[in-house]
Design a protein around this nucleic acid. Structure first.
Lengths: 146, 146
DNA sequence: CCATCTCCTGCAAATGTTTGCAATAAACCG
DNA sequence: CGGTTTATTGCAAACATTTGCAGGAGATGG
């Protein structure tokens, strides 16, 4: 997947921003990740495509993409920030704090929670990309058998 | 509230760490916040208590406290990290992306979600401090009346 | 109390991220 | 197409955070 399939130009123009070659390469670098790409990986890919692109440009493009919702950032609890391209259907992550494994779950799993918050507090939750930490089934089974 | 009321020494010793004067001052600085304190505020308070304490010591103490669960850190979506002292009862935050207001909600509100994830995925969610973004009742009412 | 172990600190350097500025370039209009 | 506007970039500097190291100090045991 590359940036061509994303309709990203319209998003930028609509928001008053410009479409640049550098930004396309940054977006491609995010697309080339497995969905969870650290800044260092993105920067390396951009550099390989065009060594003249400055690190600050990569930071800026990423920041803009996140602000515009083209890219999702996931803070992993004080650790490194991961980036992934926003997809039509929202999803969330489960990260095992024991073995480090990670899963995606669709948004339906958490919709009941959001509905509950809205009913109780009148607050419409917009957050559509959560990272939840805990213990996976495998690690819980192993812990139990010790 | 100061560090004396927290039983923090046992937590450190149990984990194989030491209780130091500097760490007590850092914890006090977090306690002195309104529950949501930026690094700069913490550092300033520590400096006022003892100007000889180095910035890196404050970073390290905070990192250790967060790792040990004595202090909670809240990433506010690409913005500044806020710190607060961990309380016995878990809670979460709702932040309005329109007006910036913030509320705390108790963990019961989200428990159904966690139970759902466990039933569906066998994953025991340990995350007990979420920051959810969206639109508050007031801003939604204003938007509707425009 | 003293000796020992080793975690912890301050300091300086290294690394990561953001910002200011002048030049570049995208976008628009005639 | 050319001129104009202004967003964007590369570069360097500033700022934020982390890391390495030697000396300091907390904790333990005799």
């Amino acid at each position: 997947m590359t940036h061509n399939e994303l309709g990203w130009e319209e998003t930028l123009w609509d928001a008053g921003y410009r479409v640049t070659r550098q930004r396309a390469l940054v977006l491609d670098a995010v697309c080339a990740g497995d969905g969870h790409t650290a800044f260092g990986d993105i920067h390396l890919r951009v550099k390989q495509a065009d060594a003249s692109i400055d690190r600050s440009t990569v930071y800026r493009a990423l920041r803009l993409f996140v602000d515009l919702g083209l890219v999702l950032s996931a803070e992993t609890g004080g650790e490194e920030t991961f980036y992934e391209v926003a997809r039509p259907e929202p999803h969330h992550h489960l990260v095992c704090r024991v073995c480090g494994s990670e899963w995606e779950i669709d948004a339906a799993a958490l919709q009941a929670m959001f509905d509950e918050v809205e009913a109780r507090h009148g607050f419409a939750v917009a957050t559509d990309h959560l990272v939840l930490f805990g213990a996976c089934a495998m690690c819980r089974t192993n812990a139990r058998s010790v």
